[in-house]
């Protein structure tokens, strides 16, 4: 590994969160480069220490969100690196690509064992953009390099997707709980399958799942959009709302890190061996 860990951000045609993601990585003390989907040789030569597939609409979500990007040649390399244990995070559309790649839940190598299906909400369909609250599963916090520093509190993050409902086949539903990483809850941490707490009808209120080793994490919420406290909405209930008030009073509002930073800080600490 290099003296400063390098995280590769993979840009597909239609990705639109790569620059925010890169900034979040750099602001967490790591290095980052954006690689286009056709730069697989450059990516291989760059020998990144971790990978992120950012949010957006790869290939305009044609056919099915993430389906076409999952077949790209650059994913061969990402797939083998993740199998070797390197940290890999998929955010929103990146999560959809990981699911369509069979990297999560990853019970059988390369097999597609889950889906991120269209939101299922009574009375509406299509794209949904709002803030949600999340619990971190204790096993995931223990083993995933992306979650080690997420603490015990409820985490508010924004979501923005039309296809974010985790689904498993009937025979695999019993195993899904083991793959849980983040679950939707209210500001008190109480889970519910009702809208808007669970915003898309996701099975087991899942907002993120991981593979058995925990190095691959597929999450629908956007941590890079809540990296700084000023990115959070005003009057947010819960602990992070209190932090907004405190930082206002202390004059540190503009420079205080937000809940999304916890995911990137976790990775930086993982590389420093602080977990």
């Amino acid at each position: 590994m290099k003296s400063v860990p390098m995280v590769a951000v993979i840009q597909f045609p239609g990705s639109n969160c790569e620059y925010e993601t890169k900034r979040a990585i750099k602001n967490s003390g790591m290095d980052s480069f954006i690689y286009r989907w056709n730069q697989w040789q450059e990516l291989r030569d760059g020998q990144p220490d971790a990978y992120i597939l950012p949010g957006g609409f790869s290939f305009q979500d044609r056919v099915r969100a993430g389906a076409v990007a999952a077949k790209e040649r650059i994913m061969d390399l990402v797939f083998s690196e993740a199998a070797d244990g390197k940290p890999l995070l998929g955010i929103c559309n990146g999560a959809q690509i990981l699911v369509e790649s069979g990297l999560v839940p990853g019970w059988e190598r390369g097999r597609i064992e889950s889906a991120l299906a269209a939101n299922h909400i009574n009375g509406r369909s299509g794209y949904l953009s709002r803030w949600v609250f999340l619990n971190v599963a204790s096993k995931a916090q223990r083993i995933s390099p992306w979650l080690g520093k997420t603490g015990n509190g409820v985490i508010p993050l924004p979501i923005a997707h039309a296809e974010g409902r985790f689904v498993f086949s009937e025979e695999n539903r019993g195993r899904a709980l083991n793959s849980a990483a983040l679950t939707y809850c209210d500001e008190e941490g109480i889970e519910s399958s009702d809208y808007p707490i669970n915003p898309n009808g996701s099975f087991l209120n899942l907002a993120a799942i991981m593979n058995d080793r925990g190095n691959v994490l597929a999450m629908m919420p956007h941590p890079e959009r809540a990296f700084w406290l000023w990115q959070l909405p005003p009057f947010l209930p819960g602990e992070w709302g209190d932090r907004i008030d405190q930082s206002f009073r202390s004059g540190s509002y503009a420079v205080t890190k937000g809940p999304g930073s916890l995911f990137f800080t976790s990775l930086a600490d993982y590389f420093r061996g602080e977990r």
Binding site: V63, R64, A67, V68, A70, K71, M75, F79, E100, S101, G102, G110, R111, I112, E113, S114, A115, A117, V167, F168, S169
Partner: peptide, 16 residues
Amino acid sequence: VSTYRDHGLLANPVSQ
């Protein structure tokens, strides 16, 4: 029918 990353494209049988 998309069962593996390198097999099939148009439908994910888990949800479709």
